[in-house]
Design a protein around this nucleic acid. Sequence first.
DNA 1: ATCCACTTTAACCAATTGGTTAATATTGCA
DNA 2: TGCAATATTAACCAATTGGTTAAAGTGGAT
Lengths: 203, 203
Amino acid sequence: MSTVEQEPGTEERILAAARRVFIRKGMVGARMQEVADEAGINKALLHYYYRDKQRLFEGVFKGSAERQFTCIWRVLEECDDLFEGIERFVATYLDRMLEEPLLPQFLISELNRDPQHLLGFIDRGKAGRAHYQKLFEQAHKDGRIIDIEPRELLVNIMALCAHPFIARPMLTHLHGMNDEAFRRMIAKRKRSVPEFIIRSIRA
Amino acid sequence: MSTVEQEPGTEERILAAARRVFIRKGMVGARMQEVADEAGINKALLHYYYRDKQRLFEGVFKGSAERQFTCIWRVLEECDDLFEGIERFVATYLDRMLEEPLLPQFLISELNRDPQHLLGFIDRGKAGRAHYQKLFEQAHKDGRIIDIEPRELLVNIMALCAHPFIARPMLTHLHGMNDEAFRRMIAKRKRSVPEFIIRSIRA
DNA sequence: ATCCACTTTAACCAATTGGTTAATATTGCA
DNA sequence: TGCAATATTAACCAATTGGTTAAAGTGGAT
């Protein structure tokens, strides 16, 4: 057991630098040299800690992606009402994205480059999705929502959460926003998106 | 003046091949050799037609992106009612995407890699967006829609259109769809998405 | 046939990139 | 102190990539 480390060790510095570079340039575009520079170390040292680019890549992003998927679905499992579930799901989703705004773009591009590699641990949310299904059926049985395919609703929810981050450069340009304005917009959406959804499905 | 060419000339074959490769691998990941192979020609010949990678890239994608942006907004300008506008906008958007399903992922990733380069001709839709604003205000004045920020509504519309294509690998895996099932789902969305939106904003 | 512009090719080049090696510095510990 | 494990570095290497060059084929007009 050691005391709390104030300055990050080399390994963590590497990971942080790699995350930035990978997110900025994507897996193909990222250069090992750039990661090394950004971490303030030598390229050989980079390979000393993470044998090759692939391992560095996985080391960097598995953490983020795993937290992302588990986080979102867990909060849903804690709810026992569809509307409440939607509200908390959206809020959690947007909060997580605000913490790591470039993650979705990153996930998308990598999912496109090598689908097999990531699809595996999308399944983490299996239990959460099953619970969503239950909440949906309950609400439907109670006559509180209109007829809509549960899958379709889920797609819509995720679209409304993720898209602003994915299309961020386009949005900020279109509406002349800076970073602060973007954050404010997302903060607003924590309320407005669930409202938008629920207005649409309420019976 | 020449007769109608039935088989595509070298230049067009190059463009088609390059489009496929660029969309598959992105600007950084795409290799000139691969484009040449896919077009059934020599690498030097590729440079003969398009001096360098950058020009080839622009040649390929300016066409697609330009059509995409102009197409979508033009159809909106033809409408004089917000609800009708939304219906036709969504339908057109989805139709265009079905024609070139990999375009959005491609646009997103390139927009992220080099924002300045593309933001320029996003502005093509300026007139269209102005018309949208007018339709919105008219509907609002007539008391046909609830209070909602026009910008926010627009973001939601585009999110619901684009996201299934952007997150396609995730969706198809999540719901166990093949290509045909995906197309059917999009076809359904041409009706369901406008319904979803309009139910939510109707006063 | 000859000329000429347009196509097409094989071979080559310089720069970049992921990754290695072997030697050196630093640290913890007996 | 001395010794071994861990960290760190500069120099190097093989493969790939975008791009060039110079030569050769093609077809049509004169």
